[in-house]
Nucleic acid binder design. Structure first.
Lengths: 329, 329
DNA sequence: GCCACTGTTGGAATCGGTTCCAGAACTTTT
DNA sequence: AAAAGTTCTGGAACCGATTCCAACAGTGGC
């Protein structure tokens, strides 16, 4: 079997404690001993058993990454960055996909809570109250959601929306639709609020279309409703819905952007590939994953350091072919 | 803090051992005792500490999911299914993204090996030899790769290729290109072999284009080379490359499928969204994830059950707009 | 040459479960 | 009612690390 600390101790002719110190706190051990221990460890290919370590230190070396749907192309970029940054801190990532279900989310969190040191909750769907209570038990960093003053990483959507609406207004659009995402999504509520406020300020009229699932199907399903709303542009909660709209419009022979302009959020990789390519508000996903891990690590080290640090990442409108001058009405 | 087994024992007025049995092996304990323990456990909200359990049982309750690039849209579907099925077996999923790097892959595996009961290695890039050695240490199920007779889940690519080439031949294509993926990819080598053999059998000529990264950029970069090869159709290692080709051809004013037909593999969600939509060989990703977990669980339970069970999943050509009759040459 | 001091080291307790083993508590048999 | 058998139960060892504490060695000062 794998070598344990005892094997190393025996081979090096020292006690367990010394082996442990030689590896964990090298300056507390005489160079000669340290050397012997290192050699013995190397010879046996010794790797400390993380489970045993966890038990005595109370730290697992794992972080939980919880997200609503990894099939949504927004997330893989974040996941990848989280993974990479976590590895640099010698942390492993436990992944949980909640299928957009708030109850499943809480259930998964509570199941995982003993095996992780902290959570990165991406776009969580649960209520503020429930999330607050999770955050009371375990260190948590929220991603793409703000819960009071708790640590979080967010995108400056408000600014993205300002850019998008300014862009549309400059193209002569006066009446635009907003296709809302899941009702349980905090980001959705935030975006709706920003859009209302920016639109009012810029004297645009906003028509709100029902909540749909943030998927292609959701966008396709709502296309008719948008066409009936006699708007010249539509802003979708995210790119998946935006792509669904493009697909729906195309199927109905509606020309984008000549007849109607479409703007999405997230700037997922596919956005630039379709025809016409989708104008979208880019979110720096890698930076987001990295920052999330960094904040969490900070939270884990500053034990009880109630420093509710929050980060806001910049967004940027990427103008592509799906937006153009407003159609004559 | 959280309640431990001792707290439960004290409250129920029994020993630790009885608590443990009452919860793990209820039939070995008198109903009255069992009841008292359950009540005490419920009252304290007791949840066994998985770390402690792991240490004594030698099982972690985790499985490691290793894949080359989660940003490749082929994987999220698999990951989601793995996650879900694993949860049903009360297993947590540790995710590792290797960035297509064989060395990083082995390093990640060896780091994680102590904290998981087994691995699901998706499209691993390491050598047969290294993988065999990993498989000697820990239960492993290979996904999208075959290593000797070791347990694996694979797609019947050969059949998919037969379908694709038959389709192209029926459209009058006589000379097609194959854009190879990463040299380290086993699937790539397999596909190349199948294509050669099927093409020979059907009397088609195959031109092989250099190995590229299985990304959009890879496809775009190789577009010129394909155009220079005077073929009427091109088969790409995967859809990402296929989409890159479409994008590259479009940028050069080459019409698909009038001038050239394109076929991809994987049938990723984006394939149906671009214009023209990409003809692709579909792989049942969810089934793949589920089967992988099932095989692994089986392997974990049949300790030393050297049953090298392997599954082969069906593939299906999805014909879309990117393929059409061969251009006149 | 003795004392005090810092620097190292080994022994043992600990984390929270699981499991073996021996003995206690019940049943059944005679 | 005693003997034999079965079922339950508690004590203790164990998994593999970490860490506290006491003991020890070596150094320097006097």
């Amino acid at each position: 079997m794998a070598a344990t600390i005892k094997d190393v101790a025996r081979l090096a002719g020292v006690s367990q404690s010394s082996v442990c110190r030689a590896l964990a706190a090298p300056d507390q051990v005489r160079p000669a001993t340290r050397e012997r221990v290192h050699q013995a460890a190397a010879q046996l290919g010794y790797r400390p058993n993380r489970v045993a370590r966890s038990l005595s230190t109370g730290r697992t070396g794992n972080i939980g990454l919880v997200l609503p749907d990894i099939a949504n192309p927004f997330f893989p970029g974040v996941v990848k960055a989280v993974q990479r940054r976590a590895r640099e801190f010698d942390l492993a990532v436990l992944l949980a996909d909640t299928d957009e279900d708030p109850a499943a989310e809480l259930e998964l969190i509570s199941t995982m809570t003993k095996q992780v040191d902290g959570f990165l909750l991406c776009s969580p769907r649960a209520s503020d109250e429930d999330l607050r209570s999770v955050s009371g038990d375990t260190p948590v960093v929220f991603v793409n959601r703000r819960v009071g003053r708790l640590p979080s990483v967010n995108f400056d959507s408000a600014d993205g929306i300002r850019q998008a609406i300014t862009h549309l207004a400059a193209l002569g659009h006066r009446r635009v639709a907003y296709v809302a995402g899941p009702r349980s999504s905090w980001v959705n509520r935030e975006r709706l609020r920003s859009i209302r406020s920016v639109a009012t300020a810029m004297d645009l009229e906003v028509v709100e279309a029902g909540n749909v699932t943030p998927t292609l199907e959701g966008g396709i399903a709502v296309a008719d409703q948008i066409l009936a709303a006699s708007v010249t542009a539509v802003i979708a909660f995210n790119d998946m819905i935006g792509l669904g709209l493009l697909s729906g419009f195309n199927a109905r022979g509606v020309n984008v952007p000549a007849d109607i302009s479409v703007v999405g959020f997230d700037n997922i990789p596919t956005a630039g590939l379709v025809n016409p390519p989708l104008t979208s508000v880019d979110m720096p996903k890698e930076q987001c994953g990295r920052s999330g891990v960094e904040l969490l690590v900070q939270l884990l080290n500053d034990r009880e350091g109630r420093a509710g640090s929050r980060r806001l990442l910049p967004t940027q409108l990427i103008v592509r072919g799906s937006t153009g001058p407003a159609a004559r009405t």
